Simulated scan of single mutants.
Amino acid sequence: MQTIQETPDLSAYLAADEAIDHHHDLVRETAARLAAGAADSYEYARAAFEFVRDTIPHSQDSGDPRVTWRASDVLEWRTGICYAKAHALAALLRAEDIPTALCYQELGVLHGLVAVRFEGTWHRQDPRGNKPGVDARFSLDGERLAFTPDPAAGERDHPLLYAAPHPVVLDVLKAARDRPHLWRTLPTALPDHAGT
């Protein structure tokens, strides 16, 4: 899939915001711990991906009713849906100066993942968490995502790479009282931009 940067300014994909709060002590400490065992930025990116994918359960899989949206809360509470886990991974990667974008798929509901930039190219990664039928892996050589959209069913990849969580996503996460409430209000699509 051809991806399109929301902004040509790569520094936007390193920025902190209210959801990707990579200046938070817990995010910095977690990043430092993961970086200590990595030989280079590729190894660090893989370790951060596997940490988020494997040690933070997707709240739907675990039955956790709590809704997280800020990266530091995802790391502290060890729970989140796809968007929240993407925010946590983006924060860990940006904490180590790896440009990271947020991206989305329409799969009946909107699904969130990230793209990392290595060697001048964006590579999408899905830290959602594996389960029977889902086997996402960190890969810079071909995508190993949790889901593949089915165009015949109206599913699709969004080509835009966002520097910050889309407001549609963030508003729904912030407004949710719990995960059952969130499930009733999940967005199914993003507003189209010119050219997408």
Rank of each mutant, 00 (worst) to 15 (best):
D171A: 15
V172C: 13
P187C: 03
P149H: 03
Q125G: 02
E143Q: 07
A189E: 11
R156W: 08
A153Q: 06
H158F: 14
G154V: 04
E155H: 10
R128K: 09
G154S: 07
T121K: 14
R177V: 14
L161G: 06
S139R: 07
L173R: 04
L173I: 11
N130G: 06
P165E: 02
G120Q: 02
R177I: 12
E119M: 11
R124T: 12
D178S: 06
E119D: 15
L186V: 06
F118S: 06
D178W: 01
G154N: 05
P191W: 01
A163C: 11
P127I: 10
R144C: 12
F118I: 04
D141V: 13
R179H: 09
H166W: 11
T121Q: 15
H123Q: 00
D150Y: 00
L190N: 12
P191M: 09
L161R: 08
L145R: 03
R128A: 10
P149S: 00
W122L: 02
E143H: 01
R124S: 10
D157L: 13
G133N: 06
H158A: 09
R156D: 05
P191C: 05
E155G: 01
F147R: 07
E119S: 15
D126F: 07
L161W: 06
F118Q: 07
W122K: 02
K131Y: 08
F147A: 01
D141N: 14
L160G: 05
E119L: 07
P187T: 05
L182D: 00
V169E: 08
G142T: 00
A175L: 06
V169W: 05
G133C: 03
N130P: 08
L145C: 07
T188I: 06
W183N: 15
R184V: 02
R177E: 14
P167W: 08
R144T: 07
K131M: 14
W183K: 15
G133H: 08
P167M: 05
D135S: 12
E119C: 09
D141P: 09
E155K: 02
G120S: 01
T188V: 11
K174D: 09
W122I: 05
V172K: 10
R137N: 13
T185K: 13
R137D: 09
P187K: 00
R179L: 15
Q125E: 12
H181I: 03
H181L: 02
P187D: 04
G120F: 01
A175C: 01
A189T: 12
R177F: 10
L173F: 05
R144Q: 13
F138A: 12
L186T: 02
G120M: 00
R156K: 12
